[in-house]
Design a protein around this nucleic acid. Structure first.
Ligand SMILES: Nc1nc2c(ncn2[C@H]2C[C@H](O)[C@@H](COP(=O)(O)OP(=O)(O)OP(=O)(O)O)O2)c(=O)[nH]1
Ligand SMILES: [Mg+2]
Ligand SMILES: [Mg+2]
Ligand SMILES: [Zn+2]
Length: 652
DNA sequence: GCCGTTTTCGGCCCGACTGTTTTCAGTCG
């Protein structure tokens, strides 16, 4: 069988959506038809054996990375029910209820299975008796009856039609019922042979647009990490600010909320007229073509492949529009519903009373004030309980970048994958205002990593270099020591004890069973010498999911042993992530935000970690490196006087 | 299906753009 590129793509998920690509070798792109019913397709819950053990259909190997029905899986099924209801002409509001429930579960930091055990499911907003029962069935058996019944009615390929831009439930259902279109390939055919064009409300232009959208769907890249969209977005915003009659231009959407990944770029402009703004936008070097334009907004495809939405509003609506365009959608709906209950109407144009009289909208504060709430920072606007917290005066006072005083995970050229000298690191860190810097190079299990003798010598060198410096930052001797497969550390304990700061990280055997990963972390934390667990989740965006380890257990031990957890600020790590930050905070475990810089230029990445921490509701007091060096020493589990150990040892 | 300082029944956020349409449905943000 020969497959066209299009068909090939139709059977394969986009990069980054795979389930356990690392462990399943057989579901390679070479056999795309097989991959369609294997681990590559999250829309196939029937391919999984149940809630506690799952196997990849292709290679029959147990998928350790996803050992049970996780929140994302439950959310996925509920959202699918919403799609199925719409496709089968069910009640649109019922569909929306399922979609809302899915969104709530997806944002939950706590495992939904835990809430179910505690009988707390119906305490969640948008989850009533019915959906709670479905979730229970899902957790117990990996499926539920209503979902199965709907699946039996709708061919699986029809669900995928919905992912094509411009195709919604009505179009998909028409194509399916009238033309027997059951998959993307059949849709392409129906568009080409003229049958699609004959459907109601279809025409030549619609069909051409769908064909184009199908091609883009093949080439789709999925979401991109925040840092890859941020510079582009800000550069376009900067250009728009210079356009005549533009009062303000801001980046909105998920970028302003600092989500770890970004679906598109959203830009808001306050101006008296839109034409000039749109013209400047079209001519921006990043922009390829405009795919839609109107008097108040337009959409562009960028050369990078990303999409950018531009919205233009009159200056008096800027605050309301910034609120609208920052989202999230769930946050907007919640706030608009709240306004409605108070007899008000909230839109991107402002807040209006029953008579349609405008009550405000120039600033975001106007919007929140009108519904009796304090301003909510964008990082919290996910619809994950922030409105309730605001109502009750429980909004956190979020940590800020300027609160962070030192960086406790930095590599020098003594690490084979890093490239800056102590001198270069200090200079840049000083420029950034850091008061202290822990030099934490790799231990011997990593290529060219330090053994015990080298570690001692390196620590001495760091200390000598530090002593000859007058100005900030202060240097701490440290290491990023590997946690080996058996849970022991890669350097002798007495060597580690002689250091100011010990980061312990897992860099090998990620695919071990999650229980084993958990045990390795616990053993490391119980060594008595570890200060912080480095990049605890082990994920790398677009490359590797986090381990399916027992985070609750890790938190318990971290608290008991007074070991901190890292918020690694590398833009492709961001680990711990926002939800895990929130759980750690609630468990009373301290966090450390670190750049893990491998070059002086990466010391500025700290902000990405701070943003993640803010999304995790962290305050200054939750983060150890907001302390000065003396205060930090006092907080550690074993006595420490930064900068003295090696000297003492040397003088013995 | 969920939910309640109007409601336990009857609502469910609100608006822009496109292509089809002869007044608006569908999709998206
Ligand atoms: N009121 C309301 N606002 C919406 C709706 N859909 C989107 N928005 C607002 C909130 C979103 O954050 C904003 C931008 O839309 P996007 O689709 O780009 O979503 P967002 O940027 O949040 O996430 P993304 O990373 O792009 O997937 O528009 C909606 O259905 N109702
Ligand atoms: Mg967006
Ligand atoms: Mg958008
Ligand atoms: Zn590391």
């Amino acid at each position: 069988m020969k497959m066209s590129d299009l068909e090939r793509h139709l059977h394969r998920g986009p990069p980054g959506e795979g389930f356990h690509r690392e462990t399943c070798k057989k579901a390679a792109p070479a056999s795309p038809a097989v991959a369609a019913v294997s681990c590559a397709d999250p829309a196939q819950p029937s391919g999984w054996a149940g809630p506690h053990r799952r196997w990849c259909r292709v290679c029959k190997a147990e998928s350790w990375r996803r050992p049970s029905m996780e929140n994302a899986d439950v959310a996925q099924v509920l959202a699918e029910v919403a799609d199925l209801l719409e496709l089968t002409g069910g009640n649109a509001f019922k569909a929306r209820a399922y979609r809302q429930a899915a969104q709530i579960v997806d944002l939950l930091p706590t495992p939904v299975s835990e809430l179910w055990r505690e009988g707390k499911l119906t305490e969640l907003p948008s989850i009533g008796e019915r959906i709670a029962a479905h979730i229970e069935e899902l957790l117990n058996t990996g499926r539920f009856r209503e979902h199965d019944q709907l699946l039996a009615k709708v061919p699986p390929g029809v669900l995928e039609l919905l992912k094509v831009e411009g195709i919604g439930p009505k179009t998909a259902s028409l194509a399916w019922k009238r033309l027997r279109v059951k998959e993307l390939a059949a849709l392409v055919k129906a568009c080409r042979d003229g049958s699609m064009e004959k459907l109601p409300r279809m025409g030549a232009k619609r069909v051409a647009a769908i064909l184009l959208a199908l091609e883009r769907y093949q080439a789709r890249k999925g979401r991109v990490p925040l840092h890859r969209a941020l510079a582009t977005a800000e550069s376009i915003a900067e250009r728009l600010r210079k356009v005549p009659h533009v009062r303000a231009a801001e980046v909105a959407g998920s970028i302003r909320r600092r989500r770890e990944t970004i679906g598109d770029i959203d830009l808001l402009v306050a101006a008296t007229g839109a034409d000039e703004v749109i013209r400047a936008f079209r001519e921006a070097p990043e922009v390829e073509t405009l795919t839609a334009t109107g008097p108040t907004k337009c959409t562009a495809r960028l050369k990078s492949g990303l999409q950018a939405d531009l919205r233009i509003v009159p200056p008096e609506s800027f605050g309301a529009a910034l609120h609208y365009f920052t989202g999230s959608k769930a946050h907007n709906i919640e706030l608009r519903t709240r306004a409605m209950r108070r007899g008000l109407k909230l839109s991107e144009y402002g807040v209006f009373d029953r008579q349609g009289k405008r009550l405000g909208g120039e600033t975001e504060q106007d919007v929140y004030r009108a519904v009796g709430l304090p301003w909510i920072p964008p990082e919290l606007r996910e619809g994950a309980g922030e409105l309730e917290a605001a109502e009750e005066g429980r909004l956190p006072r979020l940590i800020e970048e300027k609160d962070v005083r030192g960086d406790l995970h930095v590599h020098s050229e003594a690490s084979s994958d890093a490239h800056s000298s102590l001198e270069e690191l200090c200079k840049e860190a000083g420029r950034l205002g850091r008061e202290y810097l822990a030099i934490t190079d790799h231990s011997k299990s990593r290529p060219l990593g330090l053994d015990a003798v080298q570690m001692r010598a390196h620590a001495l060198a760091i200390q000598r270099f530090g002593l000859q410096r007058e100005e900030a930052p202060r240097l701490l001797t440290g290491v990023e020591v590997d946690i080996l497969q058996d849970g022991t550390l890669d350097l002798p304990l007495d060597v580690l004890q002689g250091l100011d700061w010990v980061v312990a990280s897992i860099h090998s055997h990620f695919t071990d069973p999650p229980g084993k990963i958990t045990q390795r972390m616990i053993a490391a934390m119980r060594s008595g010498v570890v200060d912080v667990l480095g990049h605890p989740g082990g994920r790398q965006l677009g490359l590797r999911d986090a381990y399916a380890f027992d985070f609750e257990k890790v938190l318990e031990v971290a608290r008991a042993e007074r070991v901190a957890l890292e918020v690694n600020a590398m833009p492709e790590r961001l680990d711990l992530d926002d939800k895990h930050c929130r759980l750690a905070k609630d468990a009373g475990v301290a966090l450390v935000i670190s750049t893990d810089a491998h070059h002086a230029s990466q010391l500025g990445n700290l902000r990405y970690g701070v943003w993640m921490a803010r999304r995790g509701w962290l305050e200054r007091g939750d983060v150890l490196n907001t302390l000065g060096p003396r205060q930090l020493e006092a907080r550690l589990h074993r006595p420490r006087h930064f900068g003295t150990h090696i000297e003492l040892r040397a003088s013995l």
